[in-house]
């Protein structure tokens, strides 16, 4: 009971913090961190709960960003419609990539998703609607629900907060649903899950599509906030970044990727100002994570807490 209560307190404290944060920190920075957190959480749905490492999640993020940017800028679609189109487009890419990639496991799954997302990168590089290296620029932020002017920083922030929290809530519900339980069973022992009569591939595919759609939600929001959809969103480096966020925060934890996302965004901001080579430091973090604390920050805290309870 006390742990339930402290969990609730934690959630309320978090919400209060998120409400006041844009008044303390630069709102765009907080939005960037929230988007990163959502992206990492979506990715973690696949790695942490499905046991499959996707090295191609930038494809979903980028696809949705393009869909959002194109539909709101050229077709004049409203914010909500653009968001939906972005999520749908990412899910569609997820279907294609998922159908191919779940035919192999483990390390091959990672290589296949990486290769397919790189293929998409080349396609986007060549198709005219993405405007190649320039990307789709000055994407209008528009109005949410027809009356909330998103060009105002705080309006944008609170709208984004609602959408992101809805995304987190969906992920939380999925993980704790019967579907999530089956997914974890597959991760822990696939042959056993098969023998229990679950159609393992179908579960994996569904999880992959859901993960892709949520990554798309993050990508679409990103295009609106930064008013830009560019090739950078689709690169393998971006796919790597989301892995680092998740790893740093804690694979298979709900809170971990959010914290990891915020940390990586903070780190990037700091490094961009310092003139140090960003990639080198990110790479060193990667190496340190893999060698020293594979459970990630949140994972280590949980393990420490359990050890303390145990003794």
């Amino acid at each position: 009971m006390t742990s339930k209560r402290s969990e609730l307190l934690l959630v309320i404290a978090g919400l209060v913090l998120l409400l006041v944060l844009p008044h303390i920190l630069y709102p765009v920075f907080v939005m960037k961190a929230l988007i990163a957190g959502l992206f990492a959480c979506a990715f973690n749905l696949m790695l942490g709960y499905g046991g499959l490492l996707s090295f191609g999640h930038a494809a979903f993020f980028g696809t949705a960003a393009y869909a959002m940017a194109h539909s709101t800028k050229l077709w004049g679609w409203p914010f909500e419609a653009g968001l939906l189109l972005g999520v749908a487009a990412a899910a569609a890419v997820g279907v294609v990539m998922g159908v191919l990639a779940i035919r192999r496991q483990g390390i091959y799954f990672a290589m296949i998703t990486l290769a397919l997302s790189q293929m998409l990168y080349f396609l986007y590089l060549q198709t005219p609607f993405t405007h190649g290296e320039d990307g789709i620029q000055s994407v209008p932020r528009g109005k949410a629900l027809g009356f909330i002017d998103l060009s105002n920083g705080l309006n944008m922030y609170y709208t984004l907060l609602v959408v992101v929290l809805a995304g987190f809530w969906l992920i939380w519900r999925t993980v704790h649903s019967p579907f999530g339980q089956v997914l974890k069973a597959i991760r822990d022992n696939e042959p056993r899950a098969t023998s229990l009569g679950y159609n393992v591939d179908r579960y994996k595919l569904l999880a992959f599509i859901l993960s892709a759609a949520l990554a798309g939600l993050a990508g679409a929001l990103n295009a609106t906030v930064f008013q830009l959809a560019s090739l950078n969103d689709v690169t393998w480096q971006h796919s790597g970044e989301v892995i680092l966020m998740t790893l740093l925060g804690g694979v298979g934890t709900i809170l971990g990727p959010v914290i990891g996302g915020a940390l990586v965004v903070t780190l990037q901001n700091y490094l961009a100002a310092s003139g140090l080579p960003v990639d080198v430091v990110i790479g060193l973090f990667f190496i340190a994570c893999v060698l020293l604390f594979r459970r990630g920050l949140v994972g280590e805290v949980i393990a420490w807490n359990e050890r303390r309870k145990g003794s």
Partner: peptide
């Protein structure tokens, strides 16, 4: 894979 990915970022960086 992840470790060597990190090595890649460092070397290229």
């Amino acid at each position: 894979l992840l470790l060597t990915f990190g090595m890649t970022l460092v070397l290229e960086g």
